[in-house]
Amino acid sequence: MEAPFALARFREGQAVRWGLVAGGRIRPLEEQDLGSGGLNGFLAALDWERLENLAAEDGPWVALDSVVLTAPVEPRQVLQTGANYRTHVIDLVVAGLSKDDPRSPEEAREWAGKMMDDRQANGEPYFFIGLPACVVGDNEPLVLPAYSEKHDWELELAVVIGTEAFRLSRAEAMDHVAGYTIVNDITTRDLVFRRDMKEIGTDWYRGKNAPGFLPTGPFLVPAKFVDPSKLKVRLELNGEVMQDATTDDLLFDIPALVSAASQNMPLLPGDLLLTGSPAGNGAHWGRLLRDGDVMTGSIQGLGTQVVRCVAEQTGQG
């Protein structure tokens, strides 16, 4: 993490406490530091200066690696953005060419590129809803449900909402962004499209919402320390690079996403807005998650999360 300070949560016995992270250290935050409304109440008022002053003071600091971190947010709503990285969508189109399609891969790529350019100029972001209960810290093992063998990774930059955002213009949007964190949006590929009635289309509830399917963190980094326009996004699986992109490949940038998402329903302090995942998912590589896999995901300036996969045991859950 490159920022002077950030927020985190850590375990203290059976309890979870808020902490201020700075320079490889963490100190507990008391109620008077965040206010009686907890994190979401603090984000509604968004007084980063108060924490910036604390970061410069002596106090009960301990080494960051001496505590166990958990998810640094408590969202009431989780919005996810689909098909928002240009290269990723183009790759999917080329990979999905049928045998009887007369186009070459190069022709399909050119066609898909033009389609994405038109969507960026004239289209709108595509959102769906995740369950806040799926948000966990990266220290928790990712249990791969036994009902499928096609669980996949999707590393994403996630926006953390500050003051309530409702029907914002693009110009107003960034005033309501408190900060950013990392989310790995786990997806069960063979459940995304309904088989019993294809006309229904996608089933994001079953495809993306299982316990622990949104590993989040490790930090909530204040927006003023982050330029989201060209951040490096990188995921390694067992040390092998799978995703390696930058956020300048987004079709719809952060102001566009926040504005569009706020049109239907107010975005509340602490809510998560996932911005989409770049090319390099397991479906692209023909290699999906297995028992014992270790995913290491990093986004420039936001730190690194490590997620360990374990197979669901028979009879579990």
Rank of each mutant, 00 (worst) to 15 (best):
A210Q: 13
N139W: 07
L274N: 09
K230L: 06
T275S: 15
K208D: 12
L220V: 12
Q80H: 05
D253P: 13
F128S: 02
V307W: 00
V183E: 06
T187L: 06
V226K: 10
D58R: 14
P211Y: 11
E31Y: 02
G24N: 09
E124A: 05
D47W: 15
G315A: 10
E49V: 05
V258W: 01
A108G: 13
T275R: 01
D291E: 07
W18C: 03
L288H: 02
V177A: 05
E74V: 14
P4K: 11
D58Q: 11
T246E: 11
L302P: 00
M242G: 00
P218F: 01
D227E: 11
L157I: 11
V136Y: 04
T296L: 12
L131K: 14
I299T: 10
E30I: 12
R308L: 09
E52K: 10
L20M: 08
M116C: 14
F213Q: 02
A45P: 00
Q305E: 06
R308P: 03
T314M: 13
G13T: 04
T304N: 10
G82Q: 15
G13K: 04
K99R: 04
A55E: 08
A83I: 08
W48L: 14
R308S: 08
I161A: 06
D248Y: 10
I26R: 09
N209P: 12
I161M: 14
G239S: 13
S277D: 01
L7F: 05
P218W: 00
L214D: 07
P278D: 08
W285I: 07
Q243L: 07
N122W: 07
G317L: 09
N238C: 13
L155Y: 03
G96L: 05
E74I: 03
R17D: 01
P228L: 06
V21N: 09
L235E: 00
L272D: 15
